[in-house]
Nucleic acid binder design. Sequence first.
DNA 1: ATGAAAGCGCTAACAG
DNA 2: CTGTTAGCGCTTTCAT
Lengths: 341, 341
Amino acid sequence: MANSDGQGDSRASVTMENVARAAGVSRALVSKAFRGKGVSEASRAAIFAAADQLGYRHNRLAASLASQQTDTIGFFFLDLYNEVFADIYTGLARVVERANKRIVLAIGDPRRGDGREAVESLLDMRVDAIVLAGTLLADEQLEALNRSTPLVAVTRFVAGIDSAGVDDRLGGRLATEHLVQLGHRRIAYISYHRPEQGFSYLERARGYADVLADAGASPIVAYTDFTRESAREAARELLTSPDRPTAIFAHNDLLALGVIEAAADLGLEVPRDLSIVGYDDIQVGSIPGIGLTTVNHRAQRLGEVAAEMALAPRDAAQQVARHRMFDPELIVRATTGPAPE
Amino acid sequence: MANSDGQGDSRASVTMENVARAAGVSRALVSKAFRGKGVSEASRAAIFAAADQLGYRHNRLAASLASQQTDTIGFFFLDLYNEVFADIYTGLARVVERANKRIVLAIGDPRRGDGREAVESLLDMRVDAIVLAGTLLADEQLEALNRSTPLVAVTRFVAGIDSAGVDDRLGGRLATEHLVQLGHRRIAYISYHRPEQGFSYLERARGYADVLADAGASPIVAYTDFTRESAREAARELLTSPDRPTAIFAHNDLLALGVIEAAADLGLEVPRDLSIVGYDDIQVGSIPGIGLTTVNHRAQRLGEVAAEMALAPRDAAQQVARHRMFDPELIVRATTGPAPE
DNA sequence: ATGAAAGCGCTAACAG
DNA sequence: CTGTTAGCGCTTTCAT
């Protein structure tokens, strides 16, 4: 009795044709029944009965090919280790599901390239639109991609591309002002940088620079590759330099966690010896023992807004890109305190 | 000049047929060229030239439909907020990419159901195999699914299903013994429980019970839904009970973080007033300020092993399921200390 | 409401 | 090495 357990092999897939025959109707009718189109109650019943009797499973590949639409939104995000993307996804998924569409994911890796392949894979799948969070692609690359599939960038502003984010310059300012008010003057900024591409997520750095200029202090900037480990190293370097900073503003919370580690590595106490501010307000930052001061941009909402844009057919004639921008909010917790001395 | 920017509309997709015509060859040859089959150098060049001149993009939908294979592994994981899945994914992706296959993801949500729909979506996509991490589906459901598409369960053992994991009973024992050795007797366990399904991830709890029995102590168990918030509540309840535990062993690190929060909520100092042990050894657990004592199971490796199984065609005639089991390791950090008194 | 026929864009034998 | 001929499983007019 090799393999004859009722359910059968299921290797040879059951097709609509089979269901149609079993239900005594045409293939077209089965198709309609499955998509909730007008079908008589009798047929519908017969069809569904036949379908699950045969163990029929709708083949989305074939359906998408035939209908020329996938009803799917692609979502690329940079890093599975950065919780902020979970927030964005949560908001996105909520809206996309409500619209009865699907999401297909492509995950990048800040340690390995700019995620171009991951995004390409989304294009290959013929998604209706792509939402990008934390993309490392250059502006021109994004603009090129946008020509073949509508893009929505989260937390990133590029002229011709729809986007959702907060005013990062203001965010950078809030963070830095907070530190200045606490008496800090030697304030470093840990950023992302990809020299070969000639771009960065610059606005936060601008806000930082604005405030330092007003305070008559000079910027100290270190670069990372968007991983906690690299932030840890960058911070270590900063903190072992002759005139070490008394505060560090990290481009995001993940990097800030790296800074916290570096401080501990060097036996510095936070915030007594070093104040730290992040950006994103990820959940782990609020855990007692971390208590990270940060800038909140309501990532879930950004995901929702991005989803709405991705779902809304951009009006005819490539109208001008839509940019939705909100205000960030400073969240003061335990990693910031008065400057030493 | 409405929209005539060279690149064209790209709405009307370029097909293989177009490329073939432009290159002066047959459609079949284009197909071969794109799949690295034997094609003369001349044709190959002409084809690729024509292809990217026309902006051709290979349609995987059509390809999969025609070839009856997607070369894709589906990966379901429970929760985007639990870093352990990032580790598993990392290992999985490494192996799958090396094999030149693709991964399609389906993400669950412990707050909303058992992820059945997410897994179904993977089946709809006709993936070659599905790797499940943190699935909440019942054994029978998994067995049923396994009949239509090969499954590999990570960190979960079901008789008929391939799996990769560590000896959780041993892991539970290691964690609990550690606490007993520190003098704790009132040790609670925070678990996952889904009563309506009649199953749990039980092995860790068994290890815990084993040790408590040996120590002559009695178990104290609380249930959660696998979210940090619910662990926080469960712990709060435990910690405000008349004879509160001096130690809590959480089913995983994410839940342990919730316990840490609860302790802080109640003004309890860790580990002076309360010792905490997690399971998974996620990265954030090692951050100074958290320093979570935990059990490591090398999640990345589990992902790799699972990928290997998913890629290896299970031998003819449904042979017996393969189970790969490793040994867990206790990692002692700062959240555990001597029992009070 | 239902069915017939014509594809969607590609791959898979099989010839040549 | 190259082309021809059939489909893959479904959706879509367009009749009936």
